[in-house]
Design a protein around this nucleic acid. Structure first.
Lengths: 144, 144
DNA sequence: ATCTTAAATGATAATCATTATCAATTAGGA
DNA sequence: TCCTAATTGATAATGATTATCATTTAAGAT
């Protein structure tokens, strides 16, 4: 898994550094958890005290650009990072208003989602749907 | 409209100040647009140069607490504010990767949404769904 | 294996949005 | 009009992220 990410780095002419490997390892270790840059920094620092916070931010930005990680905001005033799923572009999350935990959910449509979650003991109080792409004005600029 | 918001303030024992009215007016003027705190600050400043940016933030926080405005992040590193819809808790938005414009969309389910938008000339490259509420562990604490 | 060099790093300062502090002002009931 | 707690504006503080720059290093060439 780590190897395949290194291959992507190589293929795009980016160097495979100790720092980048350490960051990928930290993220792999916490699979399924949505980490902040600082979470990753703190974890990597354990075995790699010289690492700088800038390197963490730079690396996450790079990994996001290469579609290795996905960067999302859960309205906390900071970003969280997780590995991209192979399926592509479906990111469904449940955010608990009580403890703030972020739980991944699989189902595909909202009403299914909501009733499935409610059956599992969740209470849904709100939801947000955001679509990304190109509006008609920007479309041609993008596709030409 | 403005009056009804003032009534909500009154009912909850908050004072109806010139600043609060000016902020509500600015938001009403830009109906349908998702404004940042700074957008509102700049606009109000035109007719009210003494207003402070802290007051804008404080007022928006208050209006959000009273369910008059809705605070959302579109992953730009800042928040945007819009009036709450009466229907309650459905917030669907399209964010253009080209120009960054945020367009409101009405339909209720994602596949409908996506095909409806594509018919209108949009290209959808990604979407994000976030549900908010209480997880089973926090549920009882919340309902008791 | 060593050399070379552009890419990458770490320390630090800068930025930007937001929040906290606090003395001065003011809305709205007495 | 008076009183007082709520509100305000100026400003400092914070927290996440980005920019700068001198130093280090990965990895291809020799």
């Amino acid at each position: 898994m780590l190897d395949s990410y290194c291959k992507v780095l190589n293929k795009n002419r980016f160097k495979v550094t100790r720092q980048r490997k350490a960051i990928l390892e930290a993220m792999e270790k916490a699979h399924g958890v949505h980490l902040t840059a600082d979470d990753i920094y703190m974890d990597v620092k354990q075995n790699f005290p010289e690492i700088g916070i800038s390197t963490v931010y730079r690396t996450l930005e790079l990994l996001a650009r290469l579609n290795i990680v996905h960067k999302t905001s859960f309205d906390e005033g900071k970003f969280r990072y997780e590995f991209c799923e192979d399926e592509g572009h479906y990111h469904h999350h449940f955010v608990c208003n009580g403890c703030g935990s972020i739980i991944e959910v699989e189902e595909d449509f909202l009403h299914h989602l909501e009733s499935a979650l409610e059956e599992r003991g969740f209470i849904i109080t709100d939801h947000k749907v955001q679509l990304y792409g190109y509006c008609p004005e920007c479309r041609d600029r993008h596709t030409e």
